[in-house]
Design a binder for these strands. Structure first.
Lengths: 144, 144
DNA sequence: TTCCTTGCAAAACTTTTGCATTAAA
DNA sequence: TTTAATGCAAAAGTTTTGCAAGGAA
């Protein structure tokens, strides 16, 4: 389980950021958002709970899950699709893709500008493309 | 819950297919494989259990899960990464991508030949690309 | 026999819900 | 004062495990 120190971010600015998206900035939500939004990263609910508890905060699982779902619903974080059973939340809401080291469980971002398509399928009749999720699976090269 | 009739596939041929990948072809495994491999499709463990039970077969959840994991480990089916909480298994093991109607929960295949990249990121140092998972999210066009 | 597979139930996990309490507008 | 958010525990849902029984080599 990886944990980290909660970074210090300008609280007023963060509160405004949440409010601008229609999320009332409560103490818990600010802590969770600060933790997740500090740096582009990918965290499970479990990791967030552990980090908050470690920092001495009293917070319930329910609130963390509710908050993550709320932030995701308002576009402040993104839930990443993974074959793992646990939900992973991504603080980068800009268009981007992912590298995923399956064996190591490590995720990192690939900026959308690094990928371009020379051919791309048309959406089936009656549908339009809402977005593209792409994960580039990585394998560690064995050192000789 | 969508169910379907278990299709009739040549059992001997299927048994050989499993054996060729090192999976001992037992009765349960053949049924599950036949169900999943008949047509390119995307099924949850729940759907498979329901279909098997409906067809009058006595089968336990544990065996279905074990078998799906076993088939996946041996490359006979593929687990699809999804934001849903449940595991989804894909009978198409050829290189391909997915359309996903999130609202309707419908998955369909996009042949790899329909997509080509004019630029693609290099793997980070020490890594090589093991594969690419791409899901094109679809939204139904509202009819006027 | 010996080894592997299956079924059943229970356990383990992740996520959600109900409800009384607390905090915020 | 009124509404919304939180914590806690319990519930719900999915997947795994332990173990006895059954089947194949």
């Amino acid at each position: 389980m990886t944990t980290q120190i909660i970074p210090s971010i300008d609280r007023a600015q963060l509160a405004e950021h949440l409010a601008a998206r229609g999320v009332r900035p409560t103490a818990q939500r600010l802590k969770i958002a600060a933790l997740l939004l500090a740096v582009p990263q990918h965290l499970t609910a479990e990791q967030i709970i552990a980090t908050l508890k470690q920092s001495g905060m009293r917070v319930s699982k329910a609130t963390v899950y509710n908050t993550l779902n709320l932030l995701a619903a308002h576009g402040l974080v993104r839930q990443v699709a993974s074959s793992d059973e646990r939900a992973l939340f991504d603080s980068n809401t800009h268009p981007h893709f992912h590298f995923h080291d399956v064996a190591g469980g490590i995720w990192s971002d690939v900026d959308a500008s690094q990928v371009s398509f020379s051919s791309f399928p048309a959406a089936p009749p009656g549908y339009e493309v809402a977005g593209v999720d792409m994960t580039i699976r990585l394998r560690r090269i064995p050192n000789k």
